[in-house]
Nucleic acid binder design. Structure first.
Lengths: 226, 226
DNA sequence: TTCATAGTTAAGTACAGAATGAACTATTGC
DNA sequence: GCAATAGTTCATTCTGTACTTAACTATGAA
């Protein structure tokens, strides 16, 4: 087991591969060329690295025409990378000239396609407190009041329920070590907030920006102080 | 953030350092020389690597006379490494000639000084089911029946309660993604089982072996089928 | 058919950074 | 005091493996 662990660690530990994995951390699938651009290296080199990541079963591929889409082969990969990201030394320790707060990714970020980080957990807490959702042996369900709330909020639950993907489930947050909402409900909430310009995605990062409008609305709807 | 992540990943990814971290994963503190032996390299080299791990705040040191004891600086490190270990390709995939089961570390292992893995979680479930312990917003407490049970089982809770360390708390298991018992109660349970020869520690690994006796007793006391 | 784009494979090179060797400080024990 | 052990520092060497150059296959569009 030890040498297997070491192999996996070195696999992830190469700068170029770590950068590939970082890029893939927002849950989307990328083509080899896109990754080459994102990571700033040659196609041959990317091909070599992707091959190694595939061999170790960290990534999987889907062929579409002449494109190949790479993504994580399972969620454990994303979890492990998040856990590693949480080890990044905090800016305070790193350099005393830049007394920054927590890195933004820890504060507010996406986990695949739903909100994670502090905001994700606070949102979930608020929904639980307002009895919009209920927890029941490690599963979430929407209450009767909750159904009304979602439709008032402008989210069509019936539509979501028809989808094949999981409707609603708890997802463990790495930095907060607390549950937050995943599944299509999680995605719908996130998309709604994005469309209403409460939140904005940043380029090439999983960090999310809370707009001035978002700050107000999050306080109003969820009593979240940003 | 990305380059910070990459730095951390490369830090962990070096074979020698990965081996150091692996050794430290059972939660004990090791001296530099012990680590040099365990990792099979020179004292100078270990010193260099330990220095880097200290700089990144993954490890911390305690000086005791002319010895220096190294250990993880926080539990996030252990969590991240466990999460990485869970990415190790399963033997079935790795080689078709050795159709082994899960690596033993995932099955039964220690997390710092208490039981983790499948057994750790099953044990906790059983204690909850038997109303020996109760869960209350992410905290465990011992019931009145539970107090009797522990004393029957041969564990002196009063003694443990006097200690400075945390008495009882849930600890999240990486492979199972479920809570299990930590704190001094967790340690006492583990030590008791070790002393009664239900379980045995393996050399240089965090894996735990369940003895034939252990198999019987775990079934009897906790209805755990090994 | 031909050109362009997407991606792979193979051989050779380059270099970051790990390991080594030698000389050092610090603490313990006799 | 001195010897032995624990650990560090720095200059030098060495080596694994990432990256490059070049030639290749596969798919799609004109």
């Amino acid at each position: 087991m030890e040498d297997q662990f070491i192999k996996t660690a070195s696999l992830i530990g190469d700068p170029t591969r770590a950068s590939i994995l970082w890029t893939l951390m927002d849950g989307r699938a990328f083509t080899a060329t896109e990754l080459a651009v994102s990571v700033n290296t040659s196609p041959q080199n990317i091909s070599m690295h992707l091959g190694k990541l595939l061999d170790a079963n960290l990534l999987c591929v889907e062929k579409q025409g002449r494109h190949k889409y790479y993504r994580f082969s399972n969620k454990e990969v994303a979890y492990a990378l998040e856990a590693m990201a949480s080890l990044v030394p905090k800016p305070e320790i790193l350099s005393k000239n830049k007394p920054e707060k927590y890195p933004p990714i820890k504060f507010c970020r996406t986990c695949y396609d739903h909100l994670a980080g502090k905001i994700g957990v606070a949102l979930t807490d608020s929904l639980l407190e307002q009895n919009i959702i209920k927890e029941n042996n490690n599963a979430f369900e929407i209450s009767i009041e909750g159904k009304k709330w979602f439709s008032d909020f402008g989210i069509n639950l019936e539509e979501a329920q028809k989808q094949k993907r999981i409707f609603l489930k708890p997802c463990l947050d790495w930095s907060e070590r607390r549950n937050h909402i995943a599944g299509s409900v999680g995605t719908l909430l996130f998309n709604k907030m994005k469309n209403e310009d409460w939140l904005r995605k940043t380029e090439n990062s999983r960090a999310i920006i809370v707009t001035a409008k978002g700050e107000k609305e999050l306080l109003k709807y969820f009593k979240i102080v940003v």
